[in-house]
Design a protein around this nucleic acid. Sequence first.
DNA 1: GATCGAAATGTTATGATATAACATGACAAT
DNA 2: ATTGTCATGTTATATCATAACATTTCGATC
Lengths: 166, 166
Amino acid sequence: MKQRTKRRAFPREGHDHADCVASALDAAETRCADRGARLTPLRRRVLEIVWRGHAPVRAYEVLDRLREDGAGAAAPPTVYRALDFLMEHGLVHRIESLNAFIGCDHPDEAHSGQFLICRDCGLVAELDDAEISGVLARKARALGFVDERATVELRGLCPECRGGRG
Amino acid sequence: MKQRTKRRAFPREGHDHADCVASALDAAETRCADRGARLTPLRRRVLEIVWRGHAPVRAYEVLDRLREDGAGAAAPPTVYRALDFLMEHGLVHRIESLNAFIGCDHPDEAHSGQFLICRDCGLVAELDDAEISGVLARKARALGFVDERATVELRGLCPECRGGRG
DNA sequence: GATCGAAATGTTATGATATAACATGACAAT
DNA sequence: ATTGTCATGTTATATCATAACATTTCGATC
Ligand SMILES: [Zn+2]
Ligand SMILES: [Zn+2]
Ligand SMILES: [Zn+2]
Ligand SMILES: [Zn+2]
């Protein structure tokens, strides 16, 4: 995957987000082409909406944006189907503790991600740390449990917000 | 906390579950007394319902059981308030990826728990592993993020179900 | 370029989860 | 008994998600 700019866990406030979006859409095109999946205009548009920022987006927010587009109608199944597709192909992740969705900035291979969620500003950073997934799989395995998918979501304060109030 | 029987991550099918429930209710009484919290009959009953087994229970299932009790009416806020109380005092945990609740078998101190969820039989085992919480806090901290609460939920196959199908 | 099957989207309805807002009741301290 | 606090009851609604079926799109094949 081509990466136009160096990414940081929590992006700076003034960063070039148009570039984040462009990278994500490019990566999505590539990934879908590689996998023989069809990134239709609707799916592409939903991905773009999810990439509105670095905070998770809820399904009905996506729905509202689609409706603002005016073009076609839009109903919940439209949104959920597009999000399912995007998740299936690793382009977005679902944040279980927020019932919301966030774009993946490295949709390279199958991964469930680990998320740092700032309770103050709402920004989310994705990790994909092998040591974390390793220790989880190992501890589970020690109890005879086979880990297939890990949901890891940490809630707390991001560097910016921590600075603001100690 | 008094522990009547040695617990295992995934309890045996034929174990004495009445003992699990009794221990949990005892521990809850003790913990609430210690903290000056009121474990009212309603809250106690909800806790008992959540402890129906070792699989998570959904809020509206709790509601249905309460209604079967007949006594008072019951509406969603009744259930959610009781569950909030129980969570606040560490007696139950919420499983975010299932929108469901499970009793805690070691409500000793504040902890968010780590959960192994069997996709086949639905049983859930709780871990409270310091190495896991340690590596999560450390990795987060390395990025300047302060972890306040970790949601860790692994989906996969428990020992019983793994045995059944390889 | 017609036909066809599969995939995608549209459409309607409903199910499932959760909370807001306000009224009433229980209870202990004064 | 009065008062304040906490708990619960009650009504309504917000929010999240899917079932079921109709229609459209689109590429593959003839
Ligand atoms: Zn950005
Ligand atoms: Zn990712
Ligand atoms: Zn048991
Ligand atoms: Zn616990």
